[in-house]
Write a protein that binds this DNA or RNA. Sequence first.
DNA 1: CCTGATCTTTACGTTCACGTCAATTTCGAG
DNA 2: CTCGAAATTGACGTGAACGTAAAGATCAGG
Lengths: 160, 160
Amino acid sequence: MSAGETSLRIGDVARLVGTTPRTIRYYEEIGLLPEAPARHSGQHRVYTEEEVERLREVMRLKHLLGVTLEELKTLLTAEEARAAVRAELRREDVEPTRRRELLAEALGHIERQLDLVEHRSAELTKLHRELTETRGRVRAKIRALDRAGREPAASAIIVD
Amino acid sequence: MSAGETSLRIGDVARLVGTTPRTIRYYEEIGLLPEAPARHSGQHRVYTEEEVERLREVMRLKHLLGVTLEELKTLLTAEEARAAVRAELRREDVEPTRRRELLAEALGHIERQLDLVEHRSAELTKLHRELTETRGRVRAKIRALDRAGREPAASAIIVD
DNA sequence: CCTGATCTTTACGTTCACGTCAATTTCGAG
DNA sequence: CTCGAAATTGACGTGAACGTAAAGATCAGG
């Protein structure tokens, strides 16, 4: 057919995103990935580059947020909806009113994701700060010890 | 006995950190928590405030880093070692050489944790940036629509 | 000393997120 | 058309991280 349609099968996709066919089928099974991507001629699932990207995003979110696939599904309602929005918006004949609705919806989804990410980010940052402080204290003690090694003095180092 | 020793039992600890007794026993079982904290008079486990803090930290790391309990155990070797270091350092009769060794070791552990946290943090930040950008684009489209609503003009809005 | 609440160990059950067979089909190259 | 590689559905298996139930021991208050 045309040039831009790299027809991918489940094994290819698995290799591309670093997972297994079973996992991909499982994700489809639980509704994380859209129902059986158009089996073009026969039975085998056929994926587009776009769907590969989707899967990449899924696995990334899973890894980063460490949420269950069920929570992820909820979260991805956002992505799904946005995809729908994109599809509908691509048709230029939608009325501005409807168009605004769709965009507002998309915005809401994005903001939900952002909230989650920001929350997680803040927690991580806090932990990071704490660790850095501790490291600073330990380093200070080491330096103090090194100094004491060169100058003979009675130094009472308080720990922690 | 003395004043500062609030004798806590497993149920109390569970409520304090927001988990269940079973989970605490399980963590002890797999070696995530130190072996049976000194059952003072009879059979029941007795915890100190310090151990509660330890558990809090465990659950926090688990939540934030989303690692398996096995990985967490490895990570917590750091904490354990640091605790040992603190204990040994508290005795003032350790030689400066040994003292330096211990501190260096502690430093290494902390840096391992920091690496992990920083890595995770960077990924999250990246995701955050992407989301923010997308949100910006969506907002821009909405504003464009709102403007177009007031001025009658042929506006071809390209989506995504 | 009694009692109800809590804790003990032991052991089997459960959910999630896939892994792993097995028996059949389907696909693509020759 | 043929044949091997890869995909399909279906089913059962598995490891992690606990939940839950049972039967007895222990603790704190009255």
